[in-house]
Design a protein around this nucleic acid. Sequence first.
DNA 1: CAGTATCCTGTCCGATACTG
DNA 2: CAGTATCGGACAGGATACTG
Lengths: 167, 167
Amino acid sequence: MQHTSFRTMPCPIARGLDRVGEWWSILILRDAFAGMTRFDAFQKSLGIAPAMLTKRLNALVENGLLAKHRYSDKPPRDEYRLTPRGEDFRPVLIAMLAWGNRHFTPEGVRVQIVDAATGEAADPVIVDRNTGRPIAAPDYVLAPGPAASDAMRTRLAHPSTLLEQRA
Amino acid sequence: MQHTSFRTMPCPIARGLDRVGEWWSILILRDAFAGMTRFDAFQKSLGIAPAMLTKRLNALVENGLLAKHRYSDKPPRDEYRLTPRGEDFRPVLIAMLAWGNRHFTPEGVRVQIVDAATGEAADPVIVDRNTGRPIAAPDYVLAPGPAASDAMRTRLAHPSTLLEQRA
DNA sequence: CAGTATCCTGTCCGATACTG
DNA sequence: CAGTATCGGACAGGATACTG
């Protein structure tokens, strides 16, 4: 196998990664958020080989991030639209964009998020909806959830002695 | 080439992806955030082949997300610690975790972020630091930044007609 | 416009064995 | 404990050509 499947791992990050971990997937989603729906538009935008685009698009559909919508019957034509699950991926993209802008744009910011009303550049921060406080160490920590296994509990309790991730 | 290099693309998401896009990189960072620093701990936690771990670790070091710190001279021993740039990746991880928990944990939440003070589960949202409002469509949109090329400007102005991503 | 069909290469990754 | 050394397989991805 090329890489071990992350689908069955207990970690939600690993499970998510399993759906969008290929190089192109996230870039396709980015374009989808920018309003693209057509095969041709994706293909030209990304400079990706058509066969590979078909594969990635189908994977995204199978994983429930995109859905095909027929917009013409003769000839049969489908477009790819974000599903609610795909839409819900937006925060990840925003966080990635902000991180990329902070660290990898020496020539200055080329793409940013702006307040649609004012045109002002947004400064994305991740906060706890309950308290409004930024989720940063050491105020917030990882902890076992309701469905955590015992192994996961002890692992999160003693991160430095982690031994069996797969347990 | 296996995949086109994203390093020189104008998009900050692509540039970031170029640094953390391999399957294992993000999982290594996750463990680093959980407090891991040692080769052996990563290796056992991830079940990754040692040679591959070396590669991924070195790549993260080269890209400035991790730094080696010598903690023993005889024998020479290094540990891997998050740099500021690596620390700054945390919001992306949190967003991924939240998304994964919302969509791929049918058995219930196993890992979550909690308020360290109260133990209460956090509900991560991405907001604009300036206004405090959640960054969601259609309130916030992508827009060209100060250093945007003309091509990028027209592209963001007419997303549906995107033609030359690489311009 | 929206793909399918082929062929090919690079490398990600696993498995295993070995070292200071 | 922290890696290095090899081997081999699977597949992501590129390039190109072709179709309704």
